[in-house]
Design a protein around this nucleic acid. Structure first.
Length: 425
DNA sequence: TCTGGGGTCCTAGGACCC
DNA sequence: TCTGGGGTCCTAGGACCC
């Protein structure tokens, strides 16, 4: 059996650990620029606030029901996440877990043959609550996909199941699949849901009645695996932690930008952040992509978006070298006369810092830059983010964040924040 | 007026090779 | 003049996830 430990309304629950008076009240956490809702308390969900709701459309509702709104505090969430992971890990063998996202991890319970795993998970849930004040739900099942469903069942009726549900017998599984909408199956997104409905598949159970050829054709190899997982035949193992394959820094701007230099400065800053993250994991990249785009929601303004990728002659993680490439790419895609709303830099195709293959024909200055870069990183680690930076970077934080509460300030002061280390899917 | 950010994987199609 | 078949590798785009 596997177990999926999933934090309830994670970001909101983190906010409540700083301010317990938020308990029982409607609370939401907003994305960058306070743009849209990314986490909702149960009370907020009950008010009909959907996931990813644009905040401005719900201003009135927030006011009317006194919904508490917070800007996202990722340092805090990463910190709490590490706490939850540490406790959960201690319940299983050394490698018998997979951190799936900031608020979820899978545990492998296959070695527990003679104990009541429901009881065991209940104990885990209570220890997490006691030590971190984060409420979690735990779904137990023979496959990862069924764990997701077990978890959904818990969340539907937390009191009844006391936070833990085990989906083990064929009878229980059948009942669950006949209850679960196909669009709520792990791996069925918006597009596939439409295709499913077009073909008369409304419940997870309906998918199992389709011939394998059909599934293969409509959903690809992914679908065949999904069907087996739903039947309780394990197709997905726990993944070992692995290095990132790409790093992206992208932002929407508070205000639309029209001046070339304003956009350039931000894009260059994104390039530096990418470089820093590369150095943190001791890798160099071989590819850099830059994109810019206007506000896609403003149909009254001319739309423009463009992206361009450059393959580097020599792998690098130098802010200076990546900065130059970013600038060249930016020059080739920027067009005057548009209102820019969003931009980003993405780096990928990584090699370890010490295993770079160097082109015979291109000058390679990476090794001259590296000591300076590492010194810069060390100082920034010691004295704070962006205390030392390149001339092309802006000195200001160019995206918005609401006022930092006294509780959060205290938190930042008292905690050395661990490096985030998640695999994203 | 105001609409997030950061990931992974799969597939189809083109370029190129023998 | 006519013409085949089978690979591999790379990339862009789509779909999904939290």
């Amino acid at each position: 059996m596997y177990a999926l430990v999933d934090c309830n309304n994670f970001f909101v629950s983190c906010e409540r650990t700083l301010d317990p008076s938020l308990e029982g009240k409607p609370v939401v956490v907003l994305s960058n620029n306070d743009g849209c809702v990314v986490s909702r308390s149960k009370e907020a969900k009950d008010l009909g606030i959907p996931m990813a709701a644009p905040a401005f459309k719900y201003k009135e509702l927030f006011k009317k029901h006194d919904v508490k709104c917070f800007s996202a505090k990722f340092e805090l969430y990463n910190f709490k996440s590490q706490d939850v992971i540490r406790i959960s890990r201690s319940y299983v063998g050394k490698k018998d877990y997979e951190v799936y996202s900031i608020d979820e991890l899978f545990l492998d319970l296959r070695s527990f043959k003679y104990i009541d795993i429901s009881e065991y998970c209940l104990k885990l849930k209570e220890e997490i609550k006691l030590k971190t004040n984060i409420p979690v739900s735990i779904g137990i099942a023979p496959t990862k996909t069924l764990c997701k469903i077990a978890n959904r069942i818990v969340k539907k009726d937390p009191e009844r199941f006391n936070g833990v549900f085990i989906l083990d017998t064929p009878e229980k599984i059948e009942k669950a699949l006949k209850w679960l909408n196909i669009s709520d199956v792990w791996g069925i997104g918006r597009r596939l849901a439409v295709k499913m409905h077009d073909n008369g598949v409304y419940k997870a159970w309906d998918l199992l009645q389709k011939p394998e050829m059909w599934v293969r054709k409509i959903m690809g190899i992914h679908g065949v695996r999904m069907v087996n997982e739903l039947k309780g035949i394990r197709q997905l193992e726990l993944d070992a932690p692995s290095a990132k394959k790409s790093i992206a820094v992208t932002r929407s701007f508070m205000e639309m930008l029209t001046k070339k230099e304003d956009v350039r400065e931000r894009v260059e800053t994104f390039g530096m952040y990418c470089s820093e993250r590369l150095r943190k994991q001791n890798t160099c990249c071989k590819m850099v992509t830059v994109f810019v785009q206007t506000n896609r929601f403003r149909k009254d303004l001319p739309e423009y978006k463009n992206a361009k990728t450059q393959i580097l002659p020599n792998p690098t993680n130098s802010s200076i070298l990546i900065g130059r490439v970013v600038n060249d790419l930016f020059e080739s895609i920027f067009e005057e006369g548009f209102h820019y709303k969003k931009a980003g830099v993405i780096v990928n195709d990584f090699v370890p810092e010490d295993q770079r293959l160097i082109s015979l024909f291109e000058e390679d200055t990476q090794n001259q830059h590296l000591p300076v870069m590492k010194a810069m990183d060390a100082m920034n680690k010691k004295y704070g983010k962006d205390k030392v930076r390149l001339g092309s970077m802006s000195g200001e934080n160019t995206w918005g964040r609401a006022q930092i509460s006294p509780e959060y300030e205290a938190f930042l002061k008292n905690n050395t924040l661990p490096e985030a280390n998640f695999r994203f899917h």
